[in-house]
Write a protein that binds this DNA or RNA. Sequence first.
DNA 1: AGGCGGTTTAACTTTTTGGTTAAAAAAATT
DNA 2: AATTTTTTTAACCAAAAAGTTAAACCGCCT
Lengths: 211, 211
Amino acid sequence: MDNINQPETTPGSPDSTEQRIFDAAHELFVLKGLDGAKMQEIADKAGINKALLHYYYRSKEKLYEMVAKAVISRALPIIQNLLESDDPLEEKISRFIDFYIDMVSRNPFVPLFVINELNKHPDRFFEAILPKELPRPHNFFRQVEEEIAKGNLRPVKPQHLLVNVVSLCVFPFVAKPMIRIVLGLDQQEIKAFLAQRKEEVKAFVFQAIKT
Amino acid sequence: MDNINQPETTPGSPDSTEQRIFDAAHELFVLKGLDGAKMQEIADKAGINKALLHYYYRSKEKLYEMVAKAVISRALPIIQNLLESDDPLEEKISRFIDFYIDMVSRNPFVPLFVINELNKHPDRFFEAILPKELPRPHNFFRQVEEEIAKGNLRPVKPQHLLVNVVSLCVFPFVAKPMIRIVLGLDQQEIKAFLAQRKEEVKAFVFQAIKT
DNA sequence: AGGCGGTTTAACTTTTTGGTTAAAAAAATT
DNA sequence: AATTTTTTTAACCAAAAAGTTAAACCGCCT
């Protein structure tokens, strides 16, 4: 095992069995959750025997835990950086929206996974999965308040602004099938619709907060 | 059985065994999903023997299907009414936000249930659960376009406006535990925070769409 | 070549879980 | 009161799923 300079959550060399198992588990757990994904299924997808799962990862729980950790610890630092950079506020919000929508449209099941995990097993989540270092939106909040003081921004509670932006970015991708039904869109149309979200969200947010 | 004037999805008299089973199943399925909820668990919560579940509802699938139908058919007509009423647009949006946030804060797990169901078992959902009549936001869209034509509204795509409003209403409740962590709020504070959402969303949306 | 550690497999065991059955208890009907 | 019907239970069954084991395999070292 030569994973000396890799985080424990991304095990083994790039195409090792260990890694293949992890990737298969990652895909299936994110897609179906802990109960929905079956060990046999994971083994099949990884192209190996079921016993190997237990050889490399002691139990289903353990494997799940590592996957969950990897998912979380991949997303958090980027968010942290975006929020705490020293870019001017408007640019920061714009970048944040771009990044978030890019991420969510590439991995539409990840936010759902995190939300489910957090709602349904909060105990495990806090104890085993969340890292000590959490995004601190402190700098972002300060910036918002400064701009308000300068009169460049309508007085909005910075916490609500952050929640609003994230809501507008994430929810439409999570609720994609529902939107398809209600708006009566086909595969192509919903894709086009979601592709417009970056510009739409930016326009909506900037209009909402400008003085 | 005297459920002559009740929908088939709400069976039996108010405190019958049948109803108690249904209520228990409702709670657990909404909370944990099809795979997560176990028949024994449902029986325990209903205070009866496991065999009774199969006596009243043939199988887990059937029971789940009825619960899902009940959840859906409770919410859809109200949304339909809100969207298609002839209230003036601003009032309609305001009512919509009030209702949606009320509903979601009373049943925070319902939207998550619907979203999961729709993402993970779309086939079953379309065939067995969704009613024929779906909310048609047609009237709402027309109103938006009229107001834009009259110059009362910034030109926004009505579909995006609808999605934005729903996102702002639903997402914060679904993502409540995540918000708690990131904003560092305790039980009381997050409750207060979410209670502000109605006014916050209205202010945000109206500012975003006004000319 | 022969042994050694890590890797992989097939076959097995145990636990969980959905579902069944036959009979007892309770309620309704006569 | 007797009987029929509905409700409820305990015990059981079969399938699925997690987890285990012992033996085979494979690359490497000397």
